[in-house]
Deep mutational scan, measured.
Amino acid sequence: ASVAVIAAGTQGNIFATSALRSMRFLQILRMVRMDRRGGTWKLLGSVVYAHSKELITAWYIGFLVLIFASFLVYLAEKDANSDFSSYADSLWWGTITLTTIGYGDKTPHTWLGRVLAAGFALLGISFFALPAGILGSGFALKVQEQHRQKHFEKRRMPAANLIQAAWRLYSTDMSRAYLTATWYYYDSILPSFRELALLFEHVQRARNGGLRPLEVRRAPVPDGAPSRYPPVATCHRPGSTSFCPGESSRMGIKDRIRMGSSQRRTGPSKQHLAPPTMPTSPSSEQVGEATSPTKVQKSWSFNDRTRFRASLRLKPRTSAEDAPSEEVAEEKSYQCELTVDDIMPAVKTVIRSIRILKFLVAKRKFKETLRPYDVKDVIEQYSAGHLDMLGRIKSLQTRVDQIVGRGPGDRKAREKGDKGPSDAEVVDEISMMGRVVKVEKQVQSIEHKLDLLLGFYSRCLRSGTSASLGAVQVPLFDPDITSDYHSPVDHEDISVSAQTLSISRSVSTNMD
């Protein structure tokens, strides 16, 4: 405001104040949320940038038409019409005319000016109207692209899951042992070998009828009888010197917790746990005396209480009078009846079946994303299906024409109403129809010849004498029936064969 007042002088105070007050009108834009329509302006900018070359070309040609039209109309009207006294007036008329506004304040009066105005109007309006069409088509394409992008975003994750499931299904095939990355992934998420051994031990116990592997080994086996189970490696608790092959000598807290839970599941009659010990102070733990958990001091820290809870689970003690015997301790020893080589084939089979199920689920979810969402998608899918159906029908028609023997030239002739090819031409065609016709002709010829021969033979049998045999009239074959199959017997006289037959029969009768 200060700059405006200084620039306008003393009389500019009122002007500056009114100008600043008129800017209050811009507050109405906040009512229509114009300040939060950044996406709309961004869309407009992207459309203009995408079609910038077309817009520049249309505007450039339109500007050239405007300059030439205004100049030529000015030359034609400057002497006869006072409205075109300057080139600026003519340029104003050209702008209003070519933009199809047409105020009518300035019009050419001479015939030359009117002809020039009409010609440049028809030429220039087309170029001035091009930017509107370019922007409209650009907006339509952009909206369609955003629509497809939205659908693509919805299909991206199911497609990625389907590709991942397909690759993992491919890589978990037993015949592709060189693909090891997927197996490394499952090695990292699978439970430890100790848990798998416990699982298979329970399965084997159920197969043995509820007997433990130790009891199965204690059962008497006759001499020479084959053992029911192959000899396997035996594993004891981590306190002993022997372990399962492939295990580490260090046992983690999870393994100890699972070991304690498995020992508690063996039965309360074979294992008696004394009350857990509780320390009397955060600094020292008295293991010899058993106290109640309700006497825990409230001033303990979080670490002390955590250690106390761990001691409740991981440090059970047995009383002296209830101490288990050596046999019970041997039964409680952890027996590992299986090795990694025995378990891994079954584990890989389970993983393979899981990968198949996940692949089928991913495939079903991806197919669900291909379903249409709204009416536009339904129409688009219907149009695509219609085009596909037309293509299939056209391909089927082409194959039928190839089989029947109607080529493209014959199809055009039928469409024009011309006469089709004759039967002889159809026979000569190298097509399925021509071959079928040729075979039918040959079969008819053979059938006719057989009928003639059978009739001749029956007449010979009825006559009974050589004289009557020679008097029999043998009809000749019709050459038209034989089609294109020409037998060497067709052109010979059958009477010669009949005479030869009669001579042979007379000779045979004389010999008798």
Results as ranks from 00 to 15, higher is better:
Q402H: 13
A166S: 13
S325T: 12
A384G: 12
E447G: 13
L387P: 08
A362V: 13
R250P: 14
S445C: 14
L198I: 11
Y170H: 10
S175R: 09
V287M: 06
A329T: 07
L453R: 06
I494S: 06
I356F: 13
A498E: 04
A346D: 13
R309Q: 11
A206P: 09
L461R: 14
P408L: 13
V296L: 08
R462L: 11
S458P: 13
S502I: 06
K348R: 09
P316S: 15
G420R: 03
K315I: 09
L501H: 05
G405A: 03
T398N: 08
T500K: 08
P316A: 01
Y178N: 06
R399P: 01
R258C: 03
H236N: 05
Q444P: 14
Y186N: 12
G470C: 04
T318A: 12
D173N: 08
L214V: 07
K363N: 05
E429D: 13
F477I: 09
R406L: 03
P488L: 13
S188R: 15
S395G: 03
D374E: 00
S422T: 09
D304A: 14
S227P: 10
Y178F: 05
F456L: 12
Y170C: 08
D484V: 03
Y178H: 11
G409W: 07
G288R: 15
W183R: 09
Q397H: 06
H202N: 12
R250L: 04
E368Q: 11
K394Q: 01
K412T: 03
E380A: 11
E285G: 05
E327D: 06
L214M: 06
R435G: 04
A413D: 04
Y170D: 02
S504P: 15
P279H: 11
L179M: 12
L169V: 06
R313T: 14
D401N: 14
P293H: 15
D423E: 11
R352C: 05
R435L: 06
C244F: 03
G470D: 10
D401A: 12
P282T: 12
K367T: 04
D423N: 11
S463A: 12
T482N: 11
V439E: 04
H272Q: 08
R414L: 11
I354L: 02
L469V: 12
L453Q: 10
G246R: 06
H486P: 08
D255E: 14
I379N: 09
R355S: 10
A467P: 10
G464D: 07
D388V: 02
T500S: 09
L199M: 07
M432T: 03
L461Q: 09
P222S: 08
K348E: 10
D451V: 07
A498V: 05
I430F: 10
R414W: 05
V232L: 10
Y184H: 01
K358N: 14
E195V: 10
I430M: 13
A233V: 14
R307P: 14
D187N: 12
L390V: 01
P222A: 14
N303I: 07
P226S: 10
R459H: 13
R256P: 15
D342H: 08
T241P: 08
R411K: 09
T182P: 06
P230S: 11
C460S: 13
S284G: 15
C336W: 07
V203E: 10
T277K: 08
W167L: 01
L273M: 10
K449T: 03
I189M: 11
M432I: 15
E247Q: 14
S506P: 06
C235Y: 10
C244G: 11
R194T: 12
F243S: 12
K376E: 02
S171Y: 02
E492D: 04
G288C: 14
F193C: 07
S333T: 05
E368K: 09
R355K: 09
G434V: 13
P293L: 10
F302S: 14
K419Q: 11
V472G: 10
R462H: 09
D187V: 11
S269Y: 12
I446M: 11
K438M: 12
C244Y: 08
R217W: 06
Q335H: 05
D410N: 14
L198H: 13
T172I: 03
A323V: 10
T180K: 07
L312M: 14
L450P: 02
R392Q: 01
A384V: 13
P238A: 06
A323G: 05
A181G: 09
M251T: 12
L501F: 07
V232I: 14
V340M: 11
F456I: 06
S319T: 06
M344I: 09
A165T: 05
S468R: 04
V472A: 11
E368G: 02
A362G: 05
I446S: 11
L396P: 01
L199F: 12
A177S: 07
K438Q: 10
S283I: 08
E195D: 10
C244R: 14
L196M: 06
P345T: 08
K363I: 10
P479H: 09
S292I: 15
L452R: 12
H236Q: 10
K449Q: 06
M278T: 07
V427E: 11
H272N: 08
H386R: 12
S299R: 14
P324L: 03
G267V: 12
P279L: 14
D478H: 09
A233S: 09
A181S: 09
P279R: 14
D478A: 08
P345S: 10
D173Y: 01
V375A: 07
P372S: 02
I494T: 08
T369R: 02
G210A: 06
K254T: 13
E331V: 04
P245L: 10
K412N: 02
H202D: 14
D173V: 01
V496G: 08
F456V: 14
E326D: 11
P226A: 13
L370Q: 02
A225T: 09
E321K: 11
G239A: 04
W300C: 06
P479T: 04
D341E: 08
P372L: 02
D388E: 02
A290S: 15
P372R: 01
S240N: 12
T509A: 07
S262C: 15
D187Y: 08
E289Q: 05
R258P: 13
G391A: 09
S311A: 04
V378F: 10
E247G: 11
A225S: 11
T349I: 09
T280P: 10
L357R: 01
R205W: 06
R207S: 07
R505L: 02
R392P: 01
E337K: 07
R218P: 13
P488A: 06
S281P: 13
P268S: 15
K438E: 12
G409R: 10
D478G: 03
L476V: 06
Y334C: 11
K367N: 02
P245H: 09
Q444K: 06
H272R: 08
S497Y: 06
S483P: 04
C244W: 05
P268H: 09
G288S: 05
R364T: 03
Y334N: 05
R317C: 09
A166D: 00
V296M: 15
D418G: 15
Y170F: 10
A181D: 11
A177P: 12
L454W: 02
S502C: 09
T465A: 09
A346T: 10
P231R: 08
R264G: 05
K367M: 02
R176G: 08
A197S: 11
D418E: 06
K394E: 00
D493H: 14
G267C: 13
R307L: 11
R217G: 07
S431I: 10
A362T: 11
G391D: 01
M433I: 09
L452Q: 15
P220T: 14
T398I: 14
V347L: 08
P475Q: 06
L199V: 09
G252S: 12
E440G: 13
F359V: 12
M433K: 14
Y185F: 07
S227A: 14
S192P: 07
L357H: 12
Q286H: 08
P220R: 14
S495C: 09
G260A: 04
T465I: 07
